[in-house]
Design a binder for these strands. Structure first.
Lengths: 132, 132
DNA sequence: CTACGGGTTCCAGTAGCTGGAAGGTCAAGC
DNA sequence: GCTTGACCTTCCAGCTACTGGAACCCGTAG
């Protein structure tokens, strides 16, 4: 499966896929003529990377996440600890997205068409120092 | 309130805060001697940016999000449409995080200490083409 | 065998910071 | 008033994670 198809199936531009190979994330096989040849597993790893990157994980974090299921000897407590830390991080991100969503929704519902100088959201935000 | 405090309260490094001023996101007042002077509203905008950036929104998207509550005349349907699109995007991100979380959790629970050559997760992933 | 839509490498540029140098500000203590 | 040290300023260079472009190679269809 060459890079165009891999791009289509993973949702990543070819450029990015080549870059991920450069930095050692997903290393496809090569055909006799030098074309990259992606396996279904490669594709899933690329999809996984696409998801994780779009959700705010750094490339290095993605490398960790990726190693979690690339690692055939998933026996160490270290690996489990990393996975659990990532799960906690994901939970935090979900909570923050939910709060961001509430904020925007509130905005849409309560402020639209309102031309008073101060919006209730702004007031609420300006009133406190550390919350959310 | 000068930049050190702003950094502390927003969770953003001073460097980043100055950068955000450079690109026109949050423009604080200045004291007579040239120090940046952040208002509570500025702080909330910085916190907002910190959250949104860490959740994978680009700086340009953050600029849009920010304008939603900076805009005193929030009357246009355009603005509402942007906010609603962002809410949809957030929902998508939440769903993806949830799926990523399930994946990792499954991994932690079912693969740990397993030294068979193939992990159930890998098998499952390799088996399908387009789904989650 | 030529066209052309892929692929390849390499190099340069962009976005979003991040570190460091060189120097100005301010409150505390002598 | 003067010094010290933490904190501020600008500016410039470097880094991460791509992204675009040039120049060239591969493979199939006509």
């Amino acid at each position: 499966m060459n890079i165009g198809i891999a791009s289509e199936r993973s949702g990543l531009p070819s450029k990015t896929i080549r870059y991920y190979e450069d930095i050692g994330l997903v290393r496809p096989a090569r055909t006799g003529s030098g074309y990259r040849d992606y396996s279904p597993i490669d594709i899933h790893e690329l999809r996984f990377l696409q998801r994780a990157r779009s959700l705010g994980f750094s490339v290095d974090e993605c490398r960790q996440l990726l190693s979690l299921y690339q690692d055939r000897n998933r026996e160490s407590a270290d690996v489990k600890a990393i996975a659990e830390a990532k799960v906690a991080e994901i939970d935090r991100k979900i909570a923050e997205l939910a709060s961001l969503r509430r904020l925007l929704n509130h905005l849409v519902e309560h402020c639209q068409g309102d031309d008073r100088p101060d919006c209730p959201i702004i007031d609420e935000l300006a009133g406190e120092g550390t919350a959310h």
